[in-house]
């Protein structure tokens, strides 16, 4: 559900070798040119956009490996945020 919002952030921050439109949600971002430094830039952009903070256990290639993985991570983090807001 978040992948459409994630795509422009990937386009802007991931410094891939191809246009983001050429990627499916399952495409391997590391094969497309994502480096460890551009992962950091992408992470910080996602955190700012979605107002979330990635958990330590999420900080690895698996989380950032595809748009789908990122969408799932954001959904998990947003879920927690939304629950906090409801509880608060």
């Amino acid at each position: 559900m978040y992948s459409e919002q994630i795509r422009p952030l990937v386009a802007q921050h991931a410094r891939l070798r191809m246009a983001v439109d050429e990627l499916t949600d399952e495409s391997d971002l590391y094969r497309a040119g994502l480096t460890s430094l551009s992962t950091v830039n992408l992470m910080l952009a996602l955190e700012e956009h979605f107002d979330v903070e990635f958990l330590d256990r999420m900080l690895g290639r698996q989380t950032f490996g595809s748009i789908r993985c990122l969408a799932e991570a954001i959904a998990e983090l947003r879920g927690a945020t939304d629950r906090d807001r409801i509880a608060g």
């Binding site: 992962t39 950091v40 690895g60 290639r61 950032f64």
Partner: peptide, 13 residues
């Protein structure tokens, strides 16, 4: 914080 990702990825690989 960005360094945490870098450390994890360096170790993973």
């Amino acid at each position: 914080r960005g360094g945490k990702v870098q450390k994890a990825m360096q170790r993973e690989q």
